[in-house]
């Protein structure tokens, strides 16, 4: 009897430890991707960092309810998308406040390119193209932007995007098509 009462708390503790270890692994594996999505979405380093932290805090609190019906990444991405949505909604509500934005401009955002075997001219052209895509992104709706980024930056499958955004695959395709149309028009100089 005494042995039984001694074992029970230990089991519970070890289950908690296992869950914590699992969650730590999830954070380690997916944090960069969530941060990247939020950074590309907001173009604001501080905001992306803050929302990433909030995302994992929320995920940690609800980790017990995650039943593994979708991948952890899809689940986390859904949380991140909702947080981002809430952020913009709150910001719109606070229009009367002097809110300061740290979003970097297009020039700065398009500076980052991997240093491959490219000539100076190729680099300049690539930078110009990237700048045009960033500019086209500004004209996309929130959903179009999210779907576009998940597809072309995060390389997610349509089914995963549909799961993360809560949209049907058909709607995802439609948003993606419109987003690509706008990017194409911007590249051709017809925004």
């Amino acid at each position: 009897m005494a042995a039984g009462t001694a074992v029970k708390p230990m089991t519970a503790e070890s289950a908690e430890e296992i869950a914590a270890r699992e969650f730590a692994r999830v954070v380690e594996n997916h944090r960069p991707q969530i941060f990247r999505f939020l950074l590309a979405s907001t173009r604001d380093l501080d905001l992306a960092e803050t929302l990433t932290q909030e995302c994992f805090l929320k995920a940690y609190r609800n980790w017990g309810r995650f039943r593994g019906e979708s991948s952890a990444m899809t689940w986390l991405m859904r949380i991140a998308i909702n947080l981002q949505k809430d952020h913009w909604r709150n910001r719109r509500m606070q229009f009367w406040r002097h809110t300061r934005t740290n979003a970097v401009d297009l020039d700065e955002a398009s500076e980052w390119l991997p240093s491959g075997e490219r000539t100076a001219e190729q680099k300049m052209l690539a930078r110009e193209r990237v700048q045009q895509v960033w500019k086209a992104m500004e004209g996309l709706s929130e959903r179009q932007r999210t779907v576009f980024l998940l597809r072309y930056v995060e390389d997610q499958e349509l089914s995963d995007i549909a799961h993360s955004t809560g949209l049907s695959e058909g709607t995802v395709k439609a948003h993606l098509s419109r987003a690509l149309g706008k990017v194409r028009a911007e590249l051709r100089g017809k925004p």
């Binding site: 941060f35 990247r36 950074l39 955002a109 500076e111 991997p114 193209r129 045009q132 960033w134 930056v153």
Partner: peptide
Amino acid sequence: RALHDFRANAHAWSQ
């Protein structure tokens, strides 16, 4: 090409 560069840009920046 533009999407390729854009992806590379987003990855490099976030990294």
